Structure formats: C-alpha cells, structure tokens
Computed example of a mutant assay.
Amino acid sequence: MIELTRLNGETFTLNALYIQQIQSFPDTTITLTNGELIVVQEKETEVIRKTVNFYKEINVLGFRKGLEGQ
C-alpha cells in the first residue's frame, strides 16, 4: 500500500497493485485497473518510486531482501 494525497489535501492509502497507468496532465493522474481515475498532489516520479518500493516490500518483482545493489 502507498500513501498519497488528493488535490484537496486529504491523504489516503492505495493498493499499488491496482495501478494500471500514471500520467501527468499536468496534475498526476492514476488510472486503476477498474478504470477509476485518481488525481494526486505527488509528482509522477514520486508515485512510481513509492510503487516500486511497495513491490519490493511485498516481493512482487522477485527482489531478495538484503541483495539489492549486488
């Protein structure tokens, strides 16, 4: 799960496994696998960083803990 901020300042937690697409229009817009659109304050690169970190945490990408960078 990743924590994000809506344009109105409200924070929420999103299950990053449901992210299909991230775009900047210039606001960062996240398209979920169910077609729902979410606009957030974070930059596109920040959402990507948080998503990759989440994937690493739950081992979706096959990373082994302690072996990153080797």
Rank of each mutant, 00 (worst) to 15 (best):
T29I: 13
K56T: 06
N53C: 09
I22V: 15
E57H: 11
E68D: 09
T11L: 07
K65C: 05
N59F: 03
L32G: 03
V40E: 05
N15E: 04
T28I: 06
L17W: 04
L37F: 11
I58R: 10
N8H: 04
P26N: 08
T28F: 12
E36S: 09
K43Q: 09
V39T: 15
G35W: 12
T45W: 14
L17D: 12
S24M: 11
K56C: 01
M1C: 07
G62E: 07
E44W: 01
R64N: 13
E46T: 12
V52C: 07
I30P: 01
V39M: 03
I19E: 05
R64K: 14
Q70L: 11
I58G: 06
L67T: 09
R6C: 01
V47M: 14
N59Q: 06
V52W: 06
V39P: 05
I19V: 14
T31N: 00
K43I: 02
I48W: 08
F63P: 01
F54P: 02
T5S: 11
I2C: 08
T51I: 01
G35F: 04
N59M: 02
E36V: 10
N15W: 03
L4G: 08
Q23K: 11
Q70T: 09
F25L: 14
L67W: 05
L67K: 07
N59S: 08
E10K: 15
T45P: 00
K65E: 09
L61I: 15
E68Q: 14
M1K: 09
L37A: 11
I30R: 09
I2H: 11
G66N: 03
L32A: 02
I22H: 04
V60A: 14
N59G: 04
Y55H: 03
I58E: 06
Q41D: 05
E42H: 07
T13S: 13
Q41Y: 07
R49F: 10
V52F: 13
E36P: 00
G66M: 06
K43D: 12
I30W: 06
P26Y: 13
T5G: 00
G69Y: 12
L17N: 10
K65R: 13
K56F: 04
L67E: 12
V40R: 08
G69D: 10
N53R: 12
T28A: 04
S24P: 00
F63G: 04
I58T: 00
Q41A: 13
S24Y: 02
V52N: 09
N8K: 04
E57G: 02
F54C: 02
E3V: 14
E3L: 08
V39C: 04
I22T: 11
Q21M: 09
S24I: 07
V40G: 11
E68G: 02
S24G: 05
F25V: 13
R6S: 12
I48M: 05
F54L: 02
I48V: 15
Y18N: 14
I58N: 02
F54T: 00
L17G: 05
E36W: 02
L4W: 06
M1Y: 07
R6D: 05
G9D: 06
Q21N: 13
K43Y: 05
E44K: 15
V39A: 09
G62P: 01
I22R: 03
K43R: 14
T33W: 00
L7M: 15
T11P: 12
N8S: 14
P26G: 07
I48T: 08
F12V: 10
K50Q: 15
